[in-house]
Design a binder for these strands. Structure first.
Lengths: 207, 207
DNA sequence: AGCTTCTTGACACCTGGTGCCATCAACGAC
DNA sequence: GTCGTTGATGGCACCAGGTGTCAAGAAGCT
């Protein structure tokens, strides 16, 4: 065994923090998968993780948050991918790649654990969680809209195109995600995404 | 004045029920417009309407409900309009008319009172209300999707088109509504709706 | 008048969520 | 090794949304 560094990059407290966060998440997902989101109280989650209710809320802003955290990065990933696509690329292609970043995050996580699939199904089937998910989507849409406007040199305040294009892309994402969830992961996300964007392309690339 | 019928179509209790509901709604909107959604407690609304908190929850399922009720009919209206459009009409036209039913409900209410506009602005600017609004939209999307599938003779379980088309129509609705709200009702909803559907038509009518 | 039905207010209760404070372990300086 | 600081924790009181229950009262019917 090699020795640990004298001045560890991550301190003891930071590692413990990560540990507690993981245990809380694990406990929450396990309980919710078994009894449903509403039937599981925060007290029960905290107890299962061996901490107090008060501590739970120091890690997660709400009971929904512990589930919806999984989606946090997807928005940033999509936005970054869109910004990185070549400017000459047609909008339908650029947006398809952006959406695929988010879908791939789900599909990859599902490959080796099925965890992502279960989380997505939990979200889509629980009204409170679906509402949070839709709020995230609305935010992503704003972000994709400003980026699309920038790419096309349009003014998002006067042109309808940026918001419509971003919205259409997220409708594709939502539709594909739902199909993937309803089929228990059987359908191929990549193929579904391609089909969805093929249908939307005439509008995205017009003008 | 003509006499009232001996066996009134609406009983005393029913009229009082409507009265209490109206007073609750009025009190809620007035307080929320002044102090914001979160700052107004259900107790305060009930007190302003002269009833108890318990009674409030006998009329509305939640604090959000008292505001979002305004949107309840729009979904049914859109669905009915879509079902009533001639079968030969291109999808973009049929969906545009369906969406216009919902937009018109907002625009008309705004003409003579400005009430609809204020409610829409309150909804779009309050996260909790916007989430509920998005949930309604998700439901409308399901309804429009099955109706679109029926019109085109498609299977909503295998074809992506119905859900994508319905989603695109609602993206148009959402975009127009937001523009209308952000401009304080200055922009013409009808013109915006036409522009939005003109952009989406190439995808909606393809194939 | 007497009976039924609907509505209401009051009360207790559960749960999500926050502010506050005392406590204890980890870390650094001497 | 000791001391002070920092950060995480737990417990507690508290607020607000929401529900079950029950007794009381008004409206309507016979």
């Amino acid at each position: 065994m090699v020795g640990v560094s004298l001045r560890p990059a991550v301190t003891m407290a930071q590692r413990k923090r990560q540990l507690v966060s993981d245990e809380l998440t694990e406990a929450a997902l396990q309980l919710m998968a078994r009894e449903g989101f509403d039937a599981v109280t925060v007290d029960a989650i905290a107890a299962a993780a061996g901490v107090s209710k008060r501590t739970f809320f120091r890690y997660f802003a709400s009971k929904e948050d512990v589930v919806v955290r999984f989606l946090a990065d997807m928005g940033a990933g999509m936005h970054a991918e869109l910004a990185a696509r070549p400017a000459a690329e047609p909008p339908s292609t650029a947006l398809r790649h952006a959406v695929w970043v988010a879908m791939a995050a789900c599909a990859d996580g599902a490959e080796h654990s099925g965890r992502a699939l279960r989380v997505v199904q939990l979200i889509l089937r629980t009204p409170a969680l679906r509402a949070r998910f839709l709020e995230h989507q609305a935010q992503w849409r704003d972000d994709l809209a400003v980026e699309t406007a920038r790419r096309r040199g349009l003014d998002p305040e006067t042109d309808l195109y940026p918001r419509l294009a971003a919205g259409a892309a997220l409708v594709a994402f939502d539709t594909v995600l739902r199909r993937w969830s309803d089929s228990d992961g059987a359908e191929d996300p990549a193929a579904l995404t391609d089909r969805a964007f093929a249908l939307l392309a005439p509008a995205l690339d017009a003008g």
